[in-house]
Design a protein around this nucleic acid. Sequence first.
DNA 1: AATACCCACAACCGCATCTTT
DNA 2: CAAAGATGCGGTTGTGGGTAT
Length: 225
Amino acid sequence: MENTKGRKKGAWIYEEDKLLKACINKYGEGKWHLVPQRAGLNRCRKSCRLRWLNYLSPNIKRESFAEDEIDMILRLHKLLGNRWFLIAGRLPGRTSNDVKNYWHTHLLKKVVSKKEEKKDEEEKPKEKTMKMHEVIKPRPLTLSSNFGKHYFVKQQNCNVPIDCDDDTETARVPNQIANCASSNSQPSLGSIPIPCEMWSDSLWNLGEELGNEIWLMFFITRREF
DNA sequence: AATACCCACAACCGCATCTTT
DNA sequence: CAAAGATGCGGTTGTGGGTAT
């Protein structure tokens, strides 16, 4: 199987794995555009990267998911939605592809059927303060190379509850960072900056309701593969 | 034994974001 | 500042193995 550029596609064979491993061991990870050439592989850079990250990397756990891992996936998914990379980041040895696959094959059905059950029971008046299942979607952000890469809580369409009297009074935080340590990255309500204490308090309140798991979303340091 | 179906997971693709020029 | 290239993530598809009929 080959693509339009004559690159091989489909399942990897043992020899290819060996070449890729040798290449990564020699040159390290990264510079994926150079990997096919360095390794002597007729594969595209994406394919090489995926193969390493999802299969060949020595950090990968091969055994099936443990109870606590499943529990963690369920909780984190409730908070983060389909941010598989972030969820996997909290599960040592698991890749985002592993988590995503496990979700689709094992957990999705469970969650859907549970929701169906709940739906029947509910039909109650709207929650006043916040919707517990609204997903907060953090996005990766690269700071200067000295700081490495970190993930923060914030992104477009992320509604942060702040002592609201009705449904509408939530702080719609623009696509910026809640990193109080950084002077130019203060969260805001429209153009008005939100004091860090208020921001933290809001998260703290939310954290109490969600069993403090919200804090996982603070400074989820990116794994260095 | 043959076939159909299902499940698990590896791999690909598209696109958004980041970095470099 | 814009364009081009590189990177990484999430959605989706393909495929092989196991099970049921």
